[in-house]
Amino acid sequence: MGTPESTTTERTIRTRAAELTDQPLTLLTVAVFWTWLVVRWTNDFLLDGALIERGTSFFPTAPFEAAASALGSLAASLGPVGFPVGWVAGFFEFLAASIPYLPELAIGVWATILLTVLGIALGFVIAVPLSVARVYGGTITRSLALGYTELFRGTPLLAQLFVLYFATPLTTVIRELPTVGTGFIPAQAFWVAVIAFTLNSAAYQSEYIRSALNSVPEGQLTAARAIGLSKVDGIRHVVLPQGLRYAIPGWSNELVYLIKYSSLASFITVRELFERTDAIASETYRYTELFVLAGLFYLALVISASLLMEYVEEQVAIPGLGTTGR
């Protein structure tokens, strides 16, 4: 069941996305995006709104509105040949309309990133033993690990969120914990989402790591045993360092997936990027502008993740091993 063999396809998908995104303009956009985010978060979270009041945008709308209307009338006066100018006018209109919502969305991006990073990191901690159990375990541990991954990979993440949120006492338990929902610590729904993402992503990550471990030649463990390492130490010092490198492409893929699927946390009231966008949209009815904006934010996060993973891959690359030089 499942298709661990698809890692090659996934690898090419990601490499190709990187080819397309590795252009100066994209890099510049990503840099601007992150600078803005960091300044915004610093102002809102750390400096208590010292630079500018919380919720107020850094950028004035007036110049963009003026530009939009000037260009709009220019386009009108040009008649039928004015349509390119009209497009530019539309773009400025879009900017002017978006600016007031930027601060709110930046806070949403923070929650989205937190959800993703916690989900993937905690998921990794579970995924490594899971995959080792799948490859090296006895019959019982092996089938337990298999059952876990098949269960979580065979049902929708949204259904898993619903089971945890509506059908278990998890929310009640977490709500009682100290500091939850006060100050920086998000409310219980966020933590339920983190648990769901962790459990779900552990299943997918373990599948990537499992096929990576399988691609480490058997002779490697034999040689490790031959110099006197125990099986556990051989796996730890010889097989895992290689296998985890093979797993990087699949793992990056999972990171990208998780960024996008973190939007599902909005269904259980987590106030991440999608939820905040949706809340504003249902008040202002500016669905198109707002969701195009949200889409661009997600895209920027996904591209940032791809670039980051590409960098990581380069940093840990070893000649002749894994994705490079093969």
Binding site: P217, T222, A226, G228, Q242
Partner: peptide
């Protein structure tokens, strides 16, 4: 593991640790 400390082995296909 104690035994293997005392007996070294060289393999046909090397099995060098690739990482």
């Amino acid at each position: 593991n104690e035994l293997r400390k005392q007996v070294g082995m060289v393999f046909q296909d090397f099995n060098l640790f690739a990482h």
